[in-house]
């Protein structure tokens, strides 16, 4: 292995690959379409503004719902860090499989999972396209060159790297639904607070989440009104001016609301602390599950570093 191998491909092969990539893109597009759950009969330019819900919609009594929220969060967060530490494609792919099993166990509606997959697809696609062309050529790396397009040197190691990253990202993304959608948001954040995240922050996340929906609806109504007066987005100064006005108005309205909401909180005796609703009680089973889950992560990592 002294001489780096240079494989020259005929021109039709990359054509085939491009075709496959296009197919992949279409698939991703379809994913987004499904996830968007029927943008079916909306007029053009109508973006799907709905903020995804984090609600408990799973059948009661499944594994993730019974799991003590504090332990569940700590375990899965730790596991996520173990997963992203993987270096090799094999273990990373195994992690995706494990996450997929978790999704099946949690009996989660597939739309949320698909949405998350769609959410990361852009970044990962960019990596998959760019990395093979730009990774530094290590001595010993084989190189693929296409006949006729010799200036593009395609390094399979880059593709492997991008795929590994993609697998890791997907593995963590798939876990998010079993982790978050199996307990109410308030419950999740109170659990985070017990785990040491300052209560001030978790309360802010909750408040922010509540008003996200209010402002998204507000912004949607404003955009509808703008369209009704003929606003069309183009690449020009007017569009930017209009978007700036719209954002400015959105901020003015929401900043006015901040005062009213604060008043409403004070009017009901708010003194800086939100009431606590949930009580957590961990059973031995919760701990057992945590240990088991983390062991899987550690085994993956050991396999990754020292494995076959």
């Amino acid at each position: 292995m002294t001489e780096p191998a240079v494989v020259v491909l005929p021109l039709w092969l990359p054509g085939l690959i491009l075709l496959l990539a296009a197919g992949g893109l279409v698939a991703v597009g379809l994913c987004r379409r499904w996830a968007g759950a029927a943008a079916e009969e909306t007029a053009e330019e109508e973006r799907d503004w709905s903020i995804p819900e984090l609600v408990v919609e799973t059948a009661p009594g499944n594994l993730f719902q019974r799991w003590d929220t504090r332990i569940k969060l700590a375990t899965l967060l730790g596991y996520a860090f173990l997963v992203v530490s993987l270096h090799r494609p094999g273990p990373a792919a195994a992690a995706v499989l494990i996450s997929a099993v978790a999704v099946l166990l949690a009996r989660i509606p597939s739309t949320g999972v698909l949405k998350r997959a769609a959410g990361i697809s852009g970044f990962l696609l960019m990596l998959a396209l760019i990395m093979p062309l730009t990774v530094r050529r290590h001595p010993g790396d084989p190189i693929v060159v296409i006949a006729g397009l010799e200036f593009l040197t395609f390094n399979p190691r880059g593709l492997t790297l991008a795929l590994t990253i993609g697998c890791k990202a997907l593995a963590v993304a798939l876990l998010m639904e079993p982790m978050l959608a199996t307990s109410a948001l308030g419950n999740t954040l109170e659990a985070l607070a017990r785990l040491g995240v300052p209560v001030k922050l978790t309360q802010m996340v909750l408040l922010s989440h509540r008003y996200l929906h209010v402002f998204a609806a507000e912004s949607q109504r404003m955009q509808t009104a703008m369209r009704a007066r003929g606003f069309k987005q183009r690449t020009d100064r007017r569009t930017l001016q209009t978007v700036a006005n719209f954002l400015g108005m959105l901020f003015v309205r929401s900043f006015d609301r901040t005062q009213r909401v604060q008043d409403a909180m004070l009017a009901r005796g708010f003194t800086g602390r939100f009431p606590v609703h949930h009580r957590f009680a961990a059973a031995p089973g919760d701990w057992l599950l945590a240990v088991a889950w983390l062991s899987v992560g550690v085994i993956l990592l050991l396999f990754d570093r020292f494995g076959l």
Partner: peptide, 13 residues
């Protein structure tokens, strides 16, 4: 709380 609400509007923006 005000900063939290403002955050929601930035999120939407």
């Amino acid at each position: 709380p005000k900063v939290a609400l403002a955050t929601a509007s930035f999120f939407v923006a």
